[in-house]
Design a protein around this nucleic acid. Structure first.
Length: 412
RNA sequence: CGGGCUGUAGUAUAACGGUAGUACUCAACGUUCGGGACGUUGGAGCUUGAGUUCAACUCUCAACAGCCCGACCA
């Protein structure tokens, strides 16, 4: 993408009042724009990151054999009455033209469960799992910390349906592994730990995936021995690791980036989602649900990697792989244009800065935007048929021949 | 929902009970061009409502909005 064609601009100054790193940097760099507290627009760069994250998650979901669907945001309030969740204060209520009472869905059990009644009638129809990427609406008492806690956010939610608890259990374990793949691919493997948590209103326990991070609003007790943590909301007096019994647990701040639940028959009961067993009996479907907040994940990546100069994106989620800066005059410009076209032809994701601004401004913007690799073509490098490449966090760059760059990028 | 802080050009800030200033941005021209360059010129602003006052952007109250703390939180 040509940077001068990007309609967004970078800001030198931090937006007024913001304290959280992700809110400041993502806005300064032009990734997001605030609509109101807890509601953001994802601008071209930000949306690219979101889509990268989405694609990684999608690939992993498909590995589980889940089907991607897309459910509506609007649902009748009566579905929420059936599950006794109509009174939850995170619900946004609205009224239809015909006075019908509607809800903006904060999650989709109330949609998927009745939906599956159409398709599940026999044990032969099970197991099945579906997922979607969809905006959730939650009337948070207090939206905060940039995109870490918002009132409207993109979530991947996966729902699974099983004949019995055992099958649910097996699938649940597979999802656990699958989630770790996701967190590894987005660059958060080191910091993310499986955490025992309360199951909220619907099951006794659940597992959270907590990313250890200063900006976190959750407190977890981490067992360094086995890498498992317990959310402080369910920690007991003894403070021992449920896995190995270790009692010297470390207290850490963390952000909940994912969450998995065994819903069991809670929702299938409410909606009478049943199937005929092999023996000819009716039985309730066992369910699980599994969520990941995409925006929050993106925000955590910023919180963990960004530095004084700006954003720092792991390769897998960066909006572009490289930032090509053209420094100098017409001669350099001609060569840089040519190089850019060549990279595009090879499907390399490059942001090309050929603006007529000072080199200092280009450097500062490149640091702020935070692409993994910076490529400079200038009078100095051109005289030797070189470009300089530098990784975002390294101090010094290195020279490579212009003709070798496509290959270098491809292998990066 | 309770508490605190804050609302001034597009952005970030300043001052003042009596003419609203600065930087960046924006437009134009020229000089620059390896770490947010420089000059000249030109644009652009006091959240809303009520009250006090000869006079309110400034003081008071309220509303609205934002951030932070807490409560809340699949």
């Amino acid at each position: 993408m040509l940077q001068k064609e990007l309609f967004t601009k970078t800001e030198k100054q931090s937006p007024k009042g913001e304290e959280s790193k992700n809110a400041i940097l993502l806005q300064r760099a032009g990734y997001i724009a605030k609509e109101m507290a807890g509601v953001y627009t994802f601008l071209p760069l930000g949306f690219l990151v979101l889509k990268k994250i989405e694609q990684i998650i999608r690939e992993e979901m498909l590995k589980l054999g889940a089907f991607e669907i897309f459910m509506p945001s609007l649902t009748s309030e009566s579905s929420w009455e059936k599950t006794k969740r109509a009174e939850m204060d995170v619900l946004f209520h609205l009224e239809g033209r015909d006075k019908s009472r509607l809800v903006l869905n904060p999650t989709h059990e109330e949609v998927i469960t009745p939906l599956m009644k159409k398709y599940i009638s026999s044990y032969k129809d099970l197991p099945i799992s579906t997922f979607q990427f969809q905006n959730k609406f939650r009337n948070e008492p207090r939206a905060k910390s940039g995109i870490l806690r918002t009132r409207e956010f993109m979530m991947k939610d996966l729902y699974s349906f099983h004949q019995n608890e055992n099958d649910l259990e097996n699938f649940y374990e597979k999802v656990k592994e699958n989630y770790f793949n996701i967190f590894e691919r987005v660059g958060l493997k080191e910091q993310t730990v499986l955490t025992f948590a309360s199951g909220g209103a619907f099951s006794k326990y659940s597992h959270e995936f907590q990313t250890i991070c200063q900006a976190g609003e959750d407190i977890i007790h981490l067992c360094e021995k086995c890498g498992i943590a317990i959310n402080s909301e369910i920690i007991t007096e003894q403070r021992t690791c449920p896995q190995c019994g270790n009692s010297s647990l470390e207290v850490k701040k963390a952000v909940e980036v994912g969450n998995i639940f065994k819903l069991r028959t809670k929702f299938s009961e409410s909606f009478a989602l049943k199937f005929r067993t092999k023996e000819g009996q009716d039985d309730l479907v066992e369910m699980g649900c599994y969520g990941i907040g995409l925006g929050r994940l993106m925000g955590v990546i910023v919180e963990i990697y960004a530095d004084e100069q700006g954003l720092v994106w792991p390769k897998e989620v960066a909006p572009f792989k490289a930032h090509l800066l053209c420094l100098g005059g017409d001669q350099e410009r001609v060569m840089a244009d040519k190089l850019y076209k060549e990279l595009l032809a090879k499907n390399q994701e490059v942001l090309y800065d050929a603006r007529d601004v000072s080199s200092g401004e280009k450097f500062a913007d490149a640091d702020l935007i935070g692409l993994p690799l910076r490529v400079i073509l200038s009078e100095k490098t051109l005289s030797q048929d070189n470009v300089e490449i530098k990784e975002r966090l390294s101090e010094k760059g290195e020279l490579v021949k212009i003709k070798d760059l496509p290959k270098v990028l491809e292998e990066f």
